[in-house]
Design a protein around this nucleic acid. Structure first.
Lengths: 336, 336
DNA sequence: TTTATTAACGGAAACGTTTGAAAAACTATG
DNA sequence: CATAGTTTTTCAAACGTTTCCGTTAATAAA
């Protein structure tokens, strides 16, 4: 690899001058700057990221903290999409992405935060299902810039999907279609679940729809099996809902199968509403009525915010940015 | 951050001794070694990855090259799963994962290979749909250890899914069920597509099944729309196939919709076979008969191979490792 | 001409490691 | 007790940058 020294001897100047020229400092004449830049290019020079980081304490590396208790990891479409846009935006600004986790190094166990220190990441984005993990708190309380996705901590910037309003929009649609007997299979307790439930209640009150606690079973996100069971249970009694909200689109498949297995059909006998707007939901027949979270914006915003935090360290101001999604009208809700 | 120097002054020895003690060199007495390791732990020491890399030219970072012309990126379930297991295995060995792409740095465009040099990754795994990209060749011809997934280059280690045998198994199953009029909507031309087609032909010959060229349309992977069109076309004529092989499970959804839209049903009127064994395929009703690629093994094997290549540089021996998958019998094929 | 000002460049230390060679401290041997 | 051998420790250079400060040269002002 060609280094600054190589360029300096070739051009008969000092390495200091080369460094300054290439980094656009002002105390180098235009003529030599041009000459140095040119030969650097000719010689195929690229800075050595490690050496630079060692001096500047800036790695241009962002850590992605990604705990997923379900072990689905990147298979989780929401996270995969968010990560994808995060990555794209970060790369545009010259940052690379490294996965961070707790791991062993040199025989000693390293926490996620220690891992970040070891790799000297400039910033961390946290996206996970379990924000109560100790590793998360350690990072939150640390001194590395952090942006969280879909969870709000005091004094930390957060980018959250507008779960409350998304839920409201969906319920309003169901109400518009004439549904009043509405069930909601909730996701597992979490900040996201709270928000969605809040939106559900709020809209129900607004539309004068009675909320029945027995129609609010707690299931789990991305779990078609549990959703299958709960859907069957909901439809077993004599007084059954006409419309069921699912934890998310993926889990909804379990619900659809339950309905099919009961000899019923969607939307004729029972209406179904999902959440997420994943690709499959729009390939189902009938298309699932759902709410598409704006993953491209969520990821890109998180990246922008994180980079801004890194590059303007004085900014003690932390934001909570709410990203709206889009209602997707499918054919899974019957108009009564 | 506490450094080697901090430990050395605290213990009254030189930094060299500390370094050697912590790295388990033999030329340091057991007594001092134990003492140094203990205080290092007490002081919360972690090595500085940059400094170490600068000296040793080893970053313990693996680059993931991941070109996806379709722009689906991590949303692609096969790749997401492979990457997931790759990451897990690599982390076990103390390596981190960094995404590598072509990008701009300091105004100059950097190729993927240059990017790898810049970040000094110890090795690269290539997984992508388009292995003809110039960026791929540059990496293949470079001097960094490389493992490719699902594509074979001379002189480079490759981990490939057993596409040929997978296809054979599927066709044998269809034949066992009594099907003789079999169509295959191919994926776009690629090494993978070739292998699958080869397996298809081979099994057809074995079973004495006539291969009709008009029943071998070329579609595209992960593209339900094209698959929808081609499926309709296949089922329009007067002489139609009784069983259709889809490019993959995801694309198969397009086929299923086409069949539904024609007023037909699976498997009564037409049988369907997928490829990949993605989660959804097993949630469909009826479950899709398909071939599940062993993504956990593929990813883990790739990681192991790459790390072995890195840690035993003398090994000029390159392997091609074929990973078998598993046949999944669903309910989408009718027994005639 | 002298002095002050500015512009362009170089010297050198520093970042935190690793590592081979040299030195020092022991141990054993005759 | 000297010598050789062995074990343990330190020295010092090196990896490729960045950056503060000093130096030189050129220009402007007095």
């Amino acid at each position: 690899m060609v280094s600054l020294k190589d360029i300096s001897v070739r051009c008969g100047v000092s390495v200091a001058t080369v460094s300054k020229a290439l980094n656009g400092h002002k105390d180098v004449s235009e003529a030599t700057r041009e000459r140095l830049v040119r030969t650097a290019r000719e010689m195929g020079y690229f800075p050595n990221a490690q050496a630079r980081a060692l001096k500047t304490n800036r790695t241009y590396n962002l850590g992605v903290m990604f705990l997923d208790e379900a072990g689905r990891g990147l298979t989780h479409e929401f996270f995969a999409k968010v990560l994808n846009s995060f990555k794209t935006e970060a790369e545009l600004a010259g940052y690379d992405i490294t996965f961070i986790s707790n791991k062993d190094i040199g025989g000693r166990r390293m926490s996620t935060y220690e891992h970040c220190k070891y790799r000297s990441v400039d910033g961390i984005v946290i996206a996970c299902t379990d924000f109560t993990a100790p590793d998360v708190f350690e990072v939150i309380n640390g001194d590395i810039p952090v942006v969280t996705i879909d969870h709000i901590f005091d004094c930390r910037t957060a980018v959250v999907s507008n779960n409350e309003s998304g839920m409201e929009k969906l319920l309003n649609y169901a109400a518009d279609c004439g549904h009043t007997k509405i069930a909601y299979i909730q996701g597992k307790r979490s900040a996201v679940a709270e928000k969605r439930l809040a939106g559900f209640y709020k809209a129900c009150v607004n539309r004068g729809i009675e909320v029945r606690s027995e129609w609010l079973p707690v299931g789990d996100y991305c779990n078609p099996d549990i959703t299958y069971q709960l859907t069957k249970k909901l439809l077993k009694g004599k007084d059954v809902p006409t419309c069921i909200f699912m934890p998310d689109d993926y889990a909804a498949i379990g619900g659809l199968n339950a309905i099919k297995d009961l000899g019923l059909s969607v939307p004729e006998d029972v209406s179904i509403i999902g959440y997420d707007g994943i690709a499959y939901s729009q390939l189902l027949n009938p298309r699932l009525t759902t709410y598409s979270q704006d993953t491209p914006v969520i990821g890109a915003t998180a990246a922008k915010q994180l980079i801004s935090l890194i590059e303007n360290p004085q900014t003690t101001f932390t934001e909570v940015i709410t990203v709206d999604g889009q209602f997707l009208e499918g054919g899974s809700v019957k108009k009564l």
